[in-house]
């Protein structure tokens, strides 16, 4: 069955620039049938941290998980289950950087019952986010549904 592909707007504000800092605006695609708004501190998780054997690493405040997927890493769980596990750990939303995992998008497209937003990012959108993580630049992220322009192609 066909499901609308909804795009996500990801606004990233460095904590050190709050509240006046101008947010960096990136884009992604919602999957998992849970398009919606989410907000929290960006927190990276290693792909292996979302496995059955992973222990419970609780964060204090609201956070949004970002995982850079790697095709070389042993897939301990299907991606939908990894997403659920991240949400069960308290994430307000999950962002998957799928630049290095071509099959990820297909695996997540058919899922329908994720309780909170899950977003796929690629290309420069992914690079910008992961470069922040790599520099350990603490940032707040707001995810929203991208409202497409009303009549883009019609007469």
């Amino acid at each position: 069955s066909e499901r609308p592909v909804l795009r996500a707007i990801i606004k990233v504000t460095l904590l050190k620039h709050e509240p006046t800092g101008k947010p960096l605006t990136l884009e992604g695609v919602f999957v998992g049938g849970s398009a919606g708004k989410a907000e929290g501190k960006l927190m990276q998780y290693h792909p292996l941290s979302l496995c059955n054997t992973s222990e419970d690493e609780r964060q204090e405040s609201d956070f949004i998980t970002i995982v850079k997927l790697e095709h070389r890493v042993h897939h301990c769980l299907p991606l939908p289950d990894k997403a659920r596990m991240a949400l069960d750990k308290g994430a307000q939303a999950v962002i998957f950087d799928i630049r290095n995992d071509a099959s990820a998008a297909a695996e997540l497209q058919e899922v329908d019952s994720l309780p909170r937003p899950v977003v796929l990012v690629e290309d420069n959108n992914a690079k910008e986010l992961m470069d922040l993580v790599n520099k350990n630049e603490e940032a707040k992220v707001v995810i929203e549904i991208k409202m497409e322009p009303k009549w883009p192609h019609y007469d």
Binding site: E2, P4, V5, L6, R7, E148, P149, H153
Partner: peptide, 10 residues
């Protein structure tokens, strides 16, 4: 499933 159709269906 291209994005251009997204608006029609939305």
């Amino acid at each position: 499933s291209t994005n251009e159709d997204l608006h029609k269906r939305t």
